[in-house]
């Protein structure tokens, strides 16, 4: 099969770019300090017994260290429990979420906090809030006709 010389060059450039991109994504996901992999918690639970299962039997903000918190949240159509959270500036928050009914999204607008909650699974990620402000937590997956009412607030003071 004849391949034009310029096409070989073009494909070679594409291939090198591809390897460079994948290496960057791979290093950031698996080998960087902050560990910027995708939220992929493998913990499971019974979606109909969420309220009886740790840590969701005690949802809310728990201080676990200097400027470090664990935020346990339950998602359901159409709300977050808890729905108002206050943390000091510079806090690192370990989010742990699950849903008691359908699939929901957990997004904090203007940050990289973004993950899915699917029934039967716990999802988690960590984020450090460096700036003061009123953050909007919203559900970004359709969960019923009241989906657009599903939001919560996180205040960093």
């Amino acid at each position: 099969m004849h391949i034009h010389k310029l096409e070989k060059v073009w494909i070679a450039i594409g291939f090198v770019t591809l390897v460079a991109f994948l290496t960057t994504v791979g290093i950031q996901a698996f080998a960087s300090d902050g560990h910027h992999g995708a939220p992929s918690d493998l913990t499971k639970l019974d979606p109909e017994k969420v309220h009886e299962t740790e840590p969701f039997d005690d949802p809310g903000l728990h201080k676990i260290g200097e400027n470090e918190y664990e935020l346990v949240m339950i998602l359901e159509s159409y709300g977050f429990t808890p729905h108002e959270v206050r943390i000091p500036e510079g806090s690192t928050v370990h989010f742990q979420i699950t849903t008691i009914d359908v699939v929901h999204g957990f997004e904090i607008a203007g940050t990289t906090v973004n993950m899915m909650a699917t029934p039967g699974h716990v999802n988690s990620m960590t984020y450090t809030f460096e700036e003061k402000g009123n953050y909007l937590i919203l559900c970004n997956e359709f969960c019923g006709t009241g989906h657009h009412f599903m939001s919560a607030e996180l205040e960093v003071y």
Binding site: F30, P39, D41, M116, H121
Partner: peptide, 13 residues
């Protein structure tokens, strides 16, 4: 499904 629980990071990658 990158942001979904229940699927390991390795298989996603």
């Amino acid at each position: 499904q990158l942001l979904e629980p229940g699927i390991s990071e390795v298989w996603k990658y």
